[in-house]
Design a binder for these strands. Structure first.
Lengths: 185, 185
DNA sequence: TTGAATTTTCAGAAATAACTGAAAATACAT
DNA sequence: ATGTATTTTCAGTTATTTCTGAAAATTCAA
């Protein structure tokens, strides 16, 4: 089976990009194809469209499910399993960020915390530990913040982003209000 | 030459993580080692500490320089070139985000824009194009915002992050002020 | 210049990751 | 239970990435 040129361009590009984000080409292509199709698809269709083996599709779908990016769909009178993209692209962004944090940042924080518990034994290790503390604190700040953003309603986040550089001014306003309160206490 | 256990733990872990972020293990290790050392190091030292070939170090240093994460240092009376980490870890975070955007998001935006210029020829392509527009708009919003953050002073960004979920309240206040102004016009 | 010290390059080797396809396992209808 | 449709697994193959080390290029002092 063949994809339309429009779909094909998107799917192939997304496959390449998938490689850069933590997933392999196939996983990227599978997801792209499912996002663009209104109807759910089964593994055979997917393999045929993408020109890859049945086994490879199975692996890819398994991974996408573990990322909760796709969902199984049952179709009346068909024994095959069908799949479609779960949620919108905003959800997918969230999932990817969350998952990457779990796999990349969290283990690092754990290692850094362990290192910080040790007592440095010489001049050089004291310096190293200071640097590591700096890195640890920054990573912690960023992950905490990203968790907060995840919890906020998408609409709020959108508003915040649209604000652009205006956020700077809003922060100033907040500062001013704070000082006023202090003075009136 | 051997690293202290403290340094070694950090360097090895950073190497692993480097693999996940767009760089290879060696590049990650080189950077980690340079960050933790007060004195600049030359390529031979680095190769010896990390137990890798001279050529590999040369490649790695070249890449780190292209990312502007390290700087060359000349040392009096020594013909060897020395290197040290450029800027603090905050800078490095910025560089990595910027570089990744250039390599991963920007090309995608270009492709998506091209696709959006086409006129869809059937029902299915119309649906696909709608989805692609959604994705395009979100990616654009996020990249624009990330550019804004890059331009802001680190201190401001830090304040914003520390605010955490409080940002939501600040946004509400801003809304209220806006409405008041409108009413009083 | 010449030559020694140093860095860079790159072909081939080694290590890692991705993919295929057939066999094993599972799910389901009768 | 039995047979068939379907999915999953995984050993072996292929493709990709990373690394080595020796040769070529560069830098610099004399």
């Amino acid at each position: 089976m063949k994809m339309s040129p429009l779909v094909e361009t998107f799917v192939l590009h997304f496959g390449e990009m998938g490689g850069r984000w933590g997933v392999n080409r196939t996983v990227g292509q599978l997801y792209a194809l499912l996002v663009l199709s209104r109807e759910p698809m089964n593994a055979d269709d997917l393999a045929s469209y993408l020109g890859i083996s049945r086994g490879n599709v199975s692996m890819g779908l398994k991974e996408l499910q573990s990322w909760q990016l796709i969902k199984r769909v049952h179709i009346q009178g068909d024994r095959k399993e069908y799949f479609s993209a779960a949620g919108d692209f905003w959800d997918m962004g969230r999932k990817v960020i969350e998952e990457r944090r779990k796999r990349e940042i969290d283990p690092t924080l754990t290692v850094l915390r362990d290192i910080l518990l040790d007592t440095p034994s010489n001049e050089h290790d004291i310096f190293a530990q200071e640097k590591i503390r700096e890195i640890h604190d920054l990573l912690e700040l960023v992950t905490d913040w990203s968790e907060e953003l995840q919890k906020m309603q998408p609409e709020k986040v959108r508003t915040l982003m649209k604000l652009g550089s205006g956020v700077s001014k809003v922060l100033d306003i907040k500062e001013k209000l704070l000082h006023q309160n202090k003075r009136s206490e």
